[in-house]
């Protein structure tokens, strides 16, 4: 088996009395696209936000278990959140351009890394915009407000911004759900391209998307991990009844 980048062990998460994640155990393999599949409301997004501890923003969230990453337990109260979050770029369902220019958005992440001078920033901004496959489209208008880009471009800008903090993992939460099919494909291809250098965790409920780019699949249902395994085995020989039903389109 491949080296695993993140090990989720016995993870349980509650919002008040509601049991959202039930005894989740997942090994996320390094330099692969891990797709977390499942119908809406099954805890996919919550799992994602637990990985970079954005669940802390909810006053009523309680969790137990551990998430091991480079020998650190992400869930430990003393864990340095800034360090953890900079190791994981997050791409959310709708693009979230910050209220500044295109350049400013990418530079925002760089500045958090302590890179200040425009002279040092400019080549890096270009590098990450290229990595996100956006450079050619925006190179002549870097100082325009980011909000003027199309939705698909905005999402790639967010990808560039996420890459700029130099993460090892990309967390993508249904990143193409608000995009047109062509923009979605560009993002998908970019993921396949990026997995050489990054470990990618993608949440989606689009089966076809999962089939196209997944290397490893985790299928969740109502907070339980029903089945997980390498993509080929998962799609061709699912072992669980629930998985077969889902692949057959029962929940969509």
């Amino acid at each position: 088996m491949e080296k695993s980048k993140i090990s989720i062990r016995d993870l349980n998460l509650y919002f008040e009395k509601q049991h959202i994640l039930k005894n989740v155990n997942i090994e996320i393999p390094e330099n692969q696209v891990t797709v977390i599949l499942g119908p809406s409301g099954c805890g996919k997004t919550t799992l994602m936000k637990t990985l970079n501890r954005l669940v802390d923003l909810h006053d009523n969230a309680r969790f137990s278990g551990s998430i091991l990453f480079e020998g650190i337990d992400i869930l430990h109260p003393a864990t340095d959140l800034v360090h953890i979050r900079q190791k994981m770029g997050l791409l959310s369902q709708r693009p979230t351009p910050l209220p500044m220019s295109i350049f400013g958005n990418v530079a925002y992440g760089l500045k958090l890394k302590g890179i200040r001078h425009k002279k040092n920033l400019a080549p890096l901004v270009e590098k990450y915009l290229r990595e996100a496959n956006l450079w050619e489209e925006v190179k002549d208008r870097l100082n325009d407000p980011a909000i003027r880009l199309s939705i698909g471009q905005q999402q790639r800008l967010c990808l560039a911004r996420g890459l700029a903090v130099n993460p090892e993992i990309i967390l993508a939460d249904e990143p193409t759900s608000a995009l047109d099919p062509i923009s979605a494909r560009i993002i998908e291809n970019q993921f396949v391209e990026l997995k050489k250098d990054y470990t990618i965790v993608l949440v989606t409920h689009v089966l076809r998307q999962a089939r196209r780019i997944a290397d490893y699949v985790v299928f969740m249902y109502l907070g339980d991990v029903v089945e997980q395994g390498p993509a080929e085995a998962f799609f061709n020989n699912p072992t669980q009844e629930k998985t077969k039903e889902y692949l057959g389109g029962a929940f969509n």
Binding site: L57, R85, Q86, L90, S92, L98, Y108, L112
Partner: peptide
């Protein structure tokens, strides 16, 4: 969340 996830 976008800003916090960048480590801000």
């Amino acid at each position: 969340e976008a800003s916090l996830s960048l480590g801000a």
